[in-house]
Design a protein around this nucleic acid. Structure first.
Lengths: 186, 186
DNA sequence: GTCTATAGCTAGATAGAC
DNA sequence: GTCTATCTAGCTATAGAC
């Protein structure tokens, strides 16, 4: 067979960038082709299911990233809780490019796309929440409090991204990350 | 002249519903026509600038709503701060239909649409923030703390909406509204 | 596996009757 | 002011050469 022009890793990165910036309706196959360096027809060869299959792959990649860099970090019992939190927050900052990037989960929770990707999105959010819940418990919180803090932390991440974008002011996102640290460590 | 088939109020409501549910790219002129009961060409008569002008009108309406029901309430010095907060939160709950609805500001802060609507979106967010800052000051906070709390509250609103939608669980939004109350009153 | 070319459709937007 | 009919551009998706 003919060699692949771009490998799966590069392909995934390019696709994710477009999807999370423009959303499901806003991202055209032309946009996706341009961002990856492949032609439209070649994209259909790699993803016969078209845009929907591409989006599902992006969501699967997103979920795997979260399992490793958020849930995995926050529940790693061989590291002190405070250190886990610092590492997870650093990963969050890097994922969202200091607040400049849009979350792919947010971009795909609009009404037209919701029914299709519902379960994948829910699983990703739940993974983040489970990680933060475990962190809270390891810091001595009871289950109820740990759950409340987890939701508060995740809401701050998502909300500050929306506001940072809306105000075009990345300090909102960066300040909230500090607040999340204080939510657990103080 | 021939009478209007639907008045400005009804028109605005229908347009806003579609825009905030589907976003700028996702909302088609056909969708907008169907939701308002007018035909496509009639929409162009009322909004010669097409979808962009419609979206700007929706944003102007959104900003006016916030000025009245959020900023106006939170800064009303003839009412006790705690009462103002309760009223504003009730208005927020009603605006977002208990967490079911998507915020139009969020829906329009995607990369393709951002440059066009940037300033209107920023003004709306700033209005909410200013209201919460004033509330904090009236509760005895210094400027720095009041600003921090305002951002935290607004981020919780926006973030909990994203998560409620992603998890299909409205209790996330409703729980966060309680947390916002505790952020100021406790 | 990647490409050019194109089919078939739907989008945004306009013309012109009433 | 509202409508039907229509234009053009862009979309998703496919066919078929290499």
């Amino acid at each position: 067979m003919r060699p692949q022009k771009v490998d799966d890793q590069q392909l995934m990165t390019g696709l994710m960038e477009v999807i999370r910036a423009k959303g499901f309706e806003g991202a055209s196959m032309n946009d996706l082709a341009e961002a990856t360096g492949l032609k439209k027809a070649s994209l259909y060869h790699r993803f016969p299911g078209g845009k929907q299959e591409i989006t599902e792959a992006v969501l699967a990649f997103t979920q795997a990233w979260g399992r490793t860099h958020i849930h995995g970090v926050l529940t790693n019992s061989s590291i002190a809780p405070a250190e886990r939190l610092k590492t997870a927050i650093a990963n969050i900052r890097s994922l969202y490019r200091d607040g400049e990037a849009i979350c792919v989960l947010r971009a795909l929770t609009m009404d037209p796309s919701l029914p299709i990707f519902n379960s994948q999105i829910g699983n990703s959010f739940q993974g983040w929440l489970d990680g933060f819940v475990q962190l809270g418990k390891d810091l001595g919180m009871d289950h109820r409090l740990a759950q409340q803090r987890a939701i508060q932390a995740l809401a701050w991440v998502q909300g500050s991204l929306v506001i940072s974008k809306g105000l075009d002011d990345l300090t909102v996102f960066q300040g909230i990350l500090k607040d999340i640290e204080r939510l657990y460590i103080d």
